[in-house]
Every structure is written in structure tokens, then in C-alpha cells.
Design a protein around this nucleic acid. Structure first.
Lengths: 339, 339
DNA sequence: GACGGGTGTGTTATCGATAACATACCCTTT
DNA sequence: AAAGGGTATGTTATCGATAACACACCCGTC
């Protein structure tokens, strides 16, 4: 926008100025290639003088390598997924791999579109969130010919690699905690099961656990379409307090809705944990800071990212025989909101 | 990873199967190109049968268009910046433009590296956060030959376009609010000025405003290196309450630290707003949900993104003569934490 | 001193799509 | 019926870097 639109210099221009062949220029821009120090220095100087900027698009085509890793997450505005992306990115960067990030808005049709877009860019690997996809998306991933990693879940029939945890299992632990406290009237606040599959798994885990204990598993509050955030949690809690005021404990699909629920109790003068116990999911920062702090589950989001990166690197190096499934052990964090 | 690693089919393969020339296949994959319905249908069918996936890398090189827009933000794990990215992305998507997102960790040296990486990929435009860059980064942007937009700030000497607001001005409004309430002992909690320049501008605005009113502008609590989040806000508030217990109001660099400060008061039994008033910045969701809700400033992050996208599209269409500066009007939101 | 191996550099062909140009055909207009 | 314009398709050359191969030179070894 700023400077005259003269045509950008190419390696050939740099080569001419430095008095070498284009191939030597190409080598000078890579690390660990055999170019003498003097030659490389002269080339980099020439490149700098010309204002040359390396052109990846040409490199990508010829070398059939883009150094992209495609990543799809449900939402970009979510601390949990952001931490996973950060974990991924930080560990891929030293390998020269760059993340191509997209969000699906919790919509598998949108995910399909995104996956197709991304595969056209010829990434070295692709990471998706969750194990539920459209049939076409699944086919695209299966035929992509690159490492595929499904995260944040343990799919029944994985496409390739998996780095995840049992959403249902984590909530089961949570229910056990409440039941051990002698509680029986426990509710679950979550979003539409059709969209957020991890949320749906958590709800399913809640129902299964309650039934296993022989307790009523019908105190389910639907908080609308994902993302379920603080406001939705507050509204759902208000609804719950009005319709089922004898509820003893509430498990929320995430810490954000749990925090919303907590504030709604505070606004209505309902003591937490005195009259109602509250728990969330995700170990967001708010959960450890709020007063009282929130009981939650830590799914180690950045660890998911880091292990996914390790898997990708191992796969690209050919160090993997078959598809790997890495199961993350979640941690139940009992805090003030439930004791 | 899943299927046999046979070589991926190209347009030539599709063309052969469909009985047309590669050029016609190319046309069939674009919208609004003259290909008969019958031919296009046959081509898409052939492509589907072969499992052909369009190869952008070749297209990018030949057409000299990548349809990338590069975007750098300080942190990916920040709701404000995430909303800006979302505003950008949602409006660029219909134009077929894809975002290449990277984060700098509030470090302009890292920003320089990122900008260089991104420019190698030949984006159509580049968006950066803030107006402070290394000299080399600035030079790279100036010579990139593509539209450049600086956001979230109003730089003194912009590189190209700007979509931002006055961070200092917004805090000035905030100080006026507190002074109008008759308060004089007002503190500011923020991070290291050297890294987060927007935070530094807010602090500078605080100092200038206090001095303009003739009040003491030295109640500055340093909360460490960015990102300054809830925990840092709580720690800083604890420090403040111990060292300057007569402080009447606290302005925090963001809502996250403001919320941390609020909870620290609650833990210590210090009434907000009874004994201390608190304000934040950014209008994060927590600010409207917390009890009491937080007084804050709405900088309209998604609007910044949307207007930036509009600017980019206009620039790419050649509808812009010179560099544009769009000034966002921030909104002061007076809430329970300060009244 | 002949040989083997490493290092630095050059030459040629190529990655896969598409811009630019060319052409054939059909339909309308006068 | 000839001219003009639009539509559908084909041909050729090219985007800019680099893989693959070739080769010259230097060093040490037996």
C-alpha cells in the first residue's frame, strides 16, 4: 500500500546481484545446507539490498511442502481451545510448522467446509476438535493422505490419531463426589445436545452416573445453542431455582456457565455452597479466582495441544507405525463451591 | 494417514476422465466462469470419483493470489482480540479470504518474526495490533506492497490504514467519572509499560487526567509482564490495600484484572463499591455478569474487526485513494462497581 | 600418487494450475 | 446473408523455487 508497485524481486534477481546461481541462493536461505559462509553472507546481503522476500508459494509447489498444520476448533473465543492451540503452536513452531486456524461455530457442516478449504492448502497434518463429523468430512480426512488427529474426545471409531479424554467419565467422577457428600437432587445445566458433542457427552455421563447411583437423572436444564457462556448459565440457574428450588447441587457444562450460575445465586441471595453446590468444567481461570472458587475438572488443554504436536512430529518423521490414541487423565478439582 | 499413499490426482487426471482440457476443469472449479452446466457437472462428477482435491499451492503461484489475510494479535487467549478476529473473519469469508493468524505474546521482536514469516506466504493484506513495531518490522510492512492495517490504537505515524481508538482518551473519561463523584485518591493497576503498549497508553492517560485535575497520579501498581489477568489483578489489589489503604477507587488495565481486584476485596471483606470503587477496560463478559458488575469501557472489538475487513476489501477493489484512519468511539459503561 | 569421500556450486527439468490468447460456434441484428 | 457479439472451449507459456543429478575441487589415506 505504501511503496511504488514495482515488481517484487525473485531469487534470480538476488542470484544475479550476488553473482551466483539461483540454486545457491535457494540453498543460502535454508539452514544446514552446504553453502560457504562467504557466499551465504554475500547472498543475504544482496537479498537485503534488493528488499527480497522469500516466496513460499513457489517453494510450496515445487517441494510439495507447505509447513502448514491445519487446526479446527469450535470457537476461537474460548480459553480452553485457545490453550490447546497455544500448546500446539508452541511445539510446532521450532519445527518450522505454522498453524492454519479456523473455527466451526460448533457446527459440523461448517467444519466440513473448513476441512475442505484447508485440505486445498495441502497442510502437512490436520487437527480437528471432537470425533463427530459429517460423512463427507470424514471421507475427506480419511483420504487426505496426511496425519489426522482428533482431540478433546475419545471417538468410538477414530479416523487416525486421538488425543483426548472421556467427557462422560469426567462428569461421572463429579457426580460421585456429590453423591459421596450425601446429595441426591443434582441438576445438570448444558446446551443443545445436537451441536456441542462434548457437552452432550458430559450430559450423558451425568445421566448414566445418576442412574447408576439410583438417583433421579431428569433435572436437566437446556441452556440453548452453544456457546454456553456466563449469561446462559445465569439464566439457566434462575430457571432452575424457580422450577426445582429443592435442587441441592448443579453441574454445569463449563466453568463459564457455572460462574454465571454462581452469580445468579448471589443476586438472589442463595448461598453457595450453603444451600446449593455448584461445579463447572474446564478449569478456566475464573474457577480458581471467583469467590467462592469453583469445583471443576481440569482436562489439561495445553497438554492436549502439546501431545498432539508431538504426535504430528513423530508421524511426519515416520516414527509411528499405526494410529495412536493418547488418553488424557482429567483431574477433579474440589473447591469452595462444592464443600 | 489412513489410505494408501498413491499419488494424488491432478486437474489433468480429472480432465482426462471428463474428456475435456485441463483449462476447462480449472474453469469448472471457479464460480462465474463460462462453462456449460453439463460440462461442469461432468467435471465435478469426475473429480469426485477420483477423489480430487483442488491444489491451492499451484493456483497461488500461477495466479499470484493466495486469498490469505495475515493477522497478528498479542494473545490468542484473549476475548477482546478473539472478537476482533471473529469480526474480521466473518466479513472476509464471503470474499473467499482466509485468515492467517499468529500471536506475538506482547513482544514486538516476536511480532517482527511473525510478520516476516507471514509476508513470505504472500498474503493479500496484513493486519497488526497496535502501532509500535521494530524498525525492521515497520520497513517490511511499508515495502510489502499490500494493504496494511494497524488496529486497537491510533499511531502517531501510521504505516497504512488504521482502525483504532484512543486508549489514553478512554481512561481519561474514566478518571473524569471518578472525579465527578468527588474522589481524589485513585489508583491504576497495569502491567509493564514496555511490553503492552495499549496498557501503557491507558496508564499514560490515567496520569495525564489525574494531573489535569490536580490530583496525585502516583498510585500506580505494577502487575508484572503481560498478559495481566485475574490473578495478577488480585495480587496487585492485595498489595494496594496493604500499602495505600486509603485508596478510594482503582482503575485496572482490563476487566480481567479488575475482576481479580474485586474478588480480592471480597476475600478481605472490603466492600465494593462501598469502600473502594473499581473499574476495568474492555467490556469482557465477566464485567456485566459479576456481582457487582464492573464499570468498564467498550472498545467494540468485533466492530474493529469488521471495519478492518471493510477497509481491506475496499483497498483490494481499488476503491481507496490514500491511507484511511477510522477512529472508533469507545463507550464508558458505568456499572455497580463504581456507584 | 591413485583413490575415496566430503564440500560447494551449477544445470536442467519440474511441481500443478491458470493468464493470455486463439478459435469455433451460435444467435441476433440490419 | 453478412456482420457483430457473446459463449464455450482449447493451446501455449508461465508463476518462482528447488529436486535430482552432475561435477569440480580439496583433503586425507594407504
Amino acid at each position: 500500500m505504501t511503496n511504488p508497485p514495482r515488481k517484487a524481486p525473485t531469487m534470480a534477481d538476488v542470484a544475479r546481484l550476488a553473482g551466483v546461481s539461483p540454486m545457491t541462493v535457494s540453498r543460502a536461505f535454508k539452514v544446514e545446507t552446504s553453502v560457504s559462509d562467504a557466499t551465504r553472507e554475500a547472498i543475504l546481503k544482496a537479498a537485503d539490498d534488493l528488499g527480497y522476500v522469500f516466496d513460499s508459494t513457489a517453494s510450496n509447489l515445487r517441494s510439495q511442502k507447505t509447513n502448514f498444520v491445519a487446526v479446527t476448533v469450535p470457537s476461537i473465543n474460548n480459553a480452553n481451545f485457545a490453550e490447546t492451540v497455544r500448546g500446539l503452536s508452541d511445539r510446532l513452531k521450532p519445527r518450522g510448522l505454522q498453524i492454519l486456524l479456523g473455527y466451526t461455530d460448533y457446527d459440523i457442516a461448517e467444519e466440513e467446509r473448513l476441512i475442505e478449504q484447508f485440505l486445498r492448502r495441502r497442510p502437512e497434518a490436520i487437527v480437528v476438535t471432537g470425533g463427530r463429523h459429517t460423512p463427507r468430512a470424514r471421507r475427506l480426512l480419511e483420504n487426505a493422505g496426511i496425519p489426522v488427529v482428533e482431540t478433546w474426545d475419545l471417538p468410538d471409531s477414530p479416523i487416525g490419531h486421538v488425543v483426548g479424554f472421556s467427557n462422560a467419565g469426567a462428569v461421572l467422577d463429579m457426580v460421585d463426589h456429590f453423591v459421596a457428600l450425601g446429595l441426591t437432587r443434582i441438576a445438570f445445566i448444558g446446551g443443545d445436545a445436537t451441536r456441542d458433542t462434548r457437552g452432550a457427552d458430559r450430559r450423558a455421563g451425568f445421566i448414566a452416573a445418576m442412574q447408576a447411583h439410583g438417583h433421579d437423572a431428569t433435572r436437566l436444564v437446556a441452556a440453548g445453542a452453544p456457546p454456553i457462556s456466563m449469561r446462559e448459565g445465569a439464566e439457566a440457574m434462575g430457571h432452575l431455582l424457580e422450577t426445582l428450588p429443592d435442587t441441592q447441587a448443579v453441574i454445569c457444562v463449563s466453568d463459564l456457565s457455572a460462574y454465571g450460575a454462581l452469580t445468579e445465586c448471589q443476586r438472589r441471595g442463595v448461598d453457595v455452597p450453603g444451600r446449593v453446590l455448584i461445579a463447572g468444567f474446564g478449569d478456566y481461570e475464573i474457577a480458581s479466582i471467583s469467590v467462592p472458587p469453583l469445583t471443576t475438572v481440569n482436562p489439561f488443554p495445553s497438554k492436549i495441544g502439546a501431545l498432539t504436536a508431538d504426535l504430528i512430529i513423530a508421524a511426519l518423521d515416520g516414527h509411528l507405525q499405526g494410529p495412536q490414541t493418547i488418553r488424557i487423565q482429567t483431574e477433579l478439582l474440589i473447591r469452595g463451591s462444592s464443600q
